[in-house]
């Protein structure tokens, strides 16, 4: 352990601002990347699903017309 107490750890030997800024921004950008990737995937899946349902509805409508 390089630090004696928790407040010592937060203080980072006087460099707390720079160290935590660097770590914070890095974590935020990684989280942004993950979020973007997950959202992209969800969007694609949703698009496909919507398309399928639309096709299903069209098919159903066509069938109804035929049966009438």
């Amino acid at each position: 352990m390089a630090f004696t107490s928790f407040s010592d750890f937060i203080a980072m030997g006087g460099y707390s601002f720079y160290v935590w800024l660097a770590y914070g921004v890095s974590i935020v950008s990684v989280i942004a990347l993950i979020t973007h990737s997950v959202l992209t995937r969800k969007k694609i899946l949703k698009q496909v699903e919507q398309r399928l349902q639309r096709e299903k509805r069209i098919k159903a409508a066509n069938n109804r017309e035929h049966s009438l």
Binding site: G13, Y18, A22
Partner: peptide
């Protein structure tokens, strides 16, 4: 890197940024 590695004798604790940089 943040808590257990010893501080650098020249750069102090600021060198801990190395672990992501």
């Amino acid at each position: 890197g943040l808590a257990f590695a010893p501080a650098d004798y020249q750069q102090g604790d600021s060198f801990r940024i190395i672990y992501i940089h």
